[in-house]
Simulated assay, not measured.
Amino acid sequence: MQAELAQVYLTADADVPAFEQALALWCQSHSGAFGGRNLPGCWGAGDFSVELRGADSASLEALPGVARVDWLSHAPIGAGKRAPGLSGGVLRTLLLRVRADVPASQVESLERELLAMPDYMAGIRNWQLGRVTSGSSWTHVWQQEFAEVGDLHGEYLLHPYHWGWVDRWFDPAFPEWTVEAICHAYCPLPTSILAAD
């Protein structure tokens, strides 16, 4: 099953409340769509994260104050649920760009180790890893849902499995270096969207 998402970038002079209101109406008119304002601390991300769920991304660009929309579709290759009824949580989306010169076996090892993270981190409540299928420059989408932002900033980002094992795929100082660019975005999540898939 294909899934679509976008990072929405606003103009410098955008009326953010007006955009939020327009986005809320847009989501109401597109079944399963979700949009949330990215929280402080995101890196390489837009102002809003949007789950399109089959909606036309061009219609997002027509909303007031939008400078550009970074849209992509992806095919999930692994997922899990611990808290399908999660509410009032946080959705984290990590977009990855894998280096073009790494062998497929190395990419598959990266994917396996990302999908193993929930085995070590109970704070990851629901998760999904996908390979990008659209013409985007990104190659992978790694999403997690947390009960609160502290689980992302604490357990996830500081966990020994993250820094002692997974980080080598992201660090040019290691021979396993595979990921050359990331977009790290997270936003409030009223109810789980990953568990609904």
Rank of each mutant, 00 (worst) to 15 (best):
E61A: 15
A147P: 07
Q2E: 15
R92M: 11
A3T: 04
E51W: 03
E148G: 13
Q106S: 11
W43S: 03
S134L: 03
D13M: 02
H159T: 12
Q21R: 01
V132M: 06
G35I: 02
G80M: 07
L63A: 00
Q128W: 02
A104R: 05
A173Q: 13
A55F: 08
W169F: 14
A67F: 02
T191Y: 06
L10T: 11
Y9A: 03
A147W: 01
L5N: 07
S137A: 15
P172I: 09
L115P: 05
A33Q: 00
Q106I: 02
L189V: 08
G135K: 12
R92I: 04
L96S: 02
T178Y: 07
R37L: 14
L115R: 09
R112N: 14
W169V: 04
Y9L: 04
H162F: 01
L189W: 08
H153C: 02
F170H: 09
P17K: 05
V166R: 06
V50A: 04
S49D: 08
A83I: 04
P40L: 14
P40V: 13
P118S: 02
L94Y: 07
L158I: 07
L110T: 07
D119P: 04
E61F: 11
L189I: 07
A55R: 09
M1F: 01
Q28A: 14
G46E: 10
V66W: 00
Q106H: 13
L5H: 09
L110P: 11
W142I: 07
V69L: 09
F170C: 09
N126E: 05
S137D: 15
D167Q: 14
A62S: 12
I124W: 10
L25F: 10
H153G: 04
P76M: 04
C183W: 08
I77C: 15
W142E: 06
Q21F: 00
M117R: 13
A3Y: 03
A147S: 08
S73T: 05
F34R: 01
L25P: 03
A195W: 05
L129W: 05
C27S: 02
Q143L: 00
C183L: 11
A55L: 13
P40Y: 13
R68P: 08
T178D: 07
T93Y: 01
H162K: 00
A22I: 03
E108C: 10
V107E: 14
W142V: 10
L157F: 12
L157S: 15
P190S: 06
G80Q: 06
A181W: 10
G89Q: 09
Q128S: 08
V98L: 07
